[in-house]
Amino acid sequence: MAAILEVDDLRLHYLTRLGKRVQAVDGVSFQLQPGEILGIAGESGCGKTTLVSGLMGLLMPPLHLTSGAVRIAGRDILRLPPAEVRRSVLGRDIAMIPQGALNSLNPTRKVRDLATDVILAHDEGADRRAIQDRLRERFTRIGLEADAVLNAYPVQLPAGMKQRVVIGISTLLNPRIVIADEPSSALDVSSQKAVIQLLFNLLDEGIVSSMVFITHELPLLRHVAGRIAVMYAGQIVEIGTTEQVIFDGRQPYTRALMGSMLSAEPGQKSRKPVAIEGAPPNLGEPISGCRFAVRCPVAQSDCAQREQVLREVAGRHVRCHHAR
């Protein structure tokens, strides 16, 4: 089957105020198949949100394209004029639920008006009455109480509901791909569950076809994603199926990440989460050798010199030449 989204050796950098160059995404490649949910996990600052900006074709200063391509159905969106991206890509091919979306709704307007605007922006001639019916139908279909929610102002909604409304509005135009950047990290566990349920509804109802789900919570990805890519310092260090990455990670960073999470299984209390010592490397400076070397518990003498590439190990791809 042809991939719906294809990322090819993507490199993105920030040019800071002081003229410094931060290589936030450094050679990321993957493919997203129709019907698939790909999870992306990694520490804060490893470049997840930057990668999302690239996938959306939203390259605005200080963020710049270094090299590489992002193809949706064969079309390289990074080389389209920005106006064209806005007109024909965003919202239709690909939609984003941004990190911190909770506060992105204009507080002075009702949910109904916000949603109507989204439709009108893409279809100026649409009939207002028809839009109202369409909104009610859509919100009900994805499991929201349409009448109550549509007539509320964003501030009147609890955080979890607000996040679900954001998702409902972002997917009004039936985008083929949804990119969710930590959609539930700011919520309590119960609201988090409701948000995930909503995302599943979108897939099951055929409203969206594929999803990229970004989070630093590996236990959550276990239930959401079919495949997982683990990012470290701007690169993918391991990519494979969920079972492979979570229960049988081969890259030392993946294992350390898993070890730092805790789960509340009765009887698990003795299993102590272990923080990963040290901090990720500064992406503003050139790095040679394995980027994880200074923190890696199993590093060997050749690690700091040797440039690491993704290679196949036990059916998945790993960036570590010692991994077996």
């Binding site: 988090q192 590996l218 236990p219």
Partner: peptide, 28 residues
């Protein structure tokens, strides 16, 4: 509390955490 919850709200809280070892939200 976690093994013999007496309140339905406790049970709810327990069910809602995504654990690596237990089913959580399932797709239709």
């Amino acid at each position: 509390v976690t093994q013999r919850p007496t309140s339905p709200f406790t049970r709810q809280l327990l069910d809602d955490i995504p654990s690596v070892h237990r089913p959580w939200v399932t797709r239709a």
